[in-house]
Design a binder for these strands. Sequence first.
DNA 1: CTGAAATGCTGGATGATCTTGACCGAAGTC
DNA 2: GACTTCGGTCAAGATCATCCAGCATTTCAG
Lengths: 152, 152
Amino acid sequence: MLDDLDRSLLEILVRDARTSLKELAAQVGLSSPSVSERLRRLEERGVIRAFTVEIDPLALGYTLQAIVRIKPLPGKLHIVQKLIEEIAEFGECDKVTGDDCFVARLFVRSIGDLDGILDRIADKAETSTAIIKAQPIRRRPPPLGAPSASSS
Amino acid sequence: MLDDLDRSLLEILVRDARTSLKELAAQVGLSSPSVSERLRRLEERGVIRAFTVEIDPLALGYTLQAIVRIKPLPGKLHIVQKLIEEIAEFGECDKVTGDDCFVARLFVRSIGDLDGILDRIADKAETSTAIIKAQPIRRRPPPLGAPSASSS
DNA sequence: CTGAAATGCTGGATGATCTTGACCGAAGTC
DNA sequence: GACTTCGGTCAAGATCATCCAGCATTTCAG
């Protein structure tokens, strides 16, 4: 579904989404209209979900991040999920198998804020919070290499 | 440190990093050289960490994601961290307080791969894996609104 | 209070980039 | 073998970004 050229383009764009068509074309050995067409199709197919900008939370005053595991009380699952979605400080949330139902990333400006935010769901779920001390790996995409058994 | 105009620009760029200077200028009510200068400084200051592209893991064949909590065995912390960093399928990893030392996101193409990857750290750490069933909130930045007490 | 310097903005010219349309060749189909 | 489709190139016209000169406002020293 994706060929090597597509993967090369993706790799370059992940590093710098502002790379010009001209530059992309030069790096993969195509003309710029071709590259443009390929990008259009990658977007159309949903391979490229968005062109975006990565912002440093610290620059916005968020000096703290936490991983919060959330286990809604019986019957409160949907309410809790809605609540999480509405709290903008949650920067990510996954619904997982196992005892904890949700695992979320929380951005806060200070320890004080942390308590304030978690209070908003405290009566509807059990939460367990772990403060992030360091980020050995910041968000990165999975390897772009071709799927093992390529039936080209 | 950031004024309203900067925040507006960031908000627009988070949604679409390809928005042209001209368009940005029109939306915030400045000229394009001014916008260009502001972006340059936002990058310089590290507020904008990168222009990038968000890729759908599914499009690359990664049908499964998991949250893995990793607790290195005594004395193995550094080895484990290095190992995690080297395994490209880990798409995110945070070092947290508490009993589990690391919390990581793992991309895999199939359940079989999951076991294979976790085996690589199994003899150096205790791991606890939760399969992601849904993603109520996909990666998003914290709220861009001004810090509460703005001493303008 | 006054003048100088710094900051951040605008507008227009210039050069680079993107997009569009016409055309071409390879591959698969009837 | 001819037709269709797909993905590609090239060239031109349109669009966009950058550069530069000039201006207003603010700040600070004297």
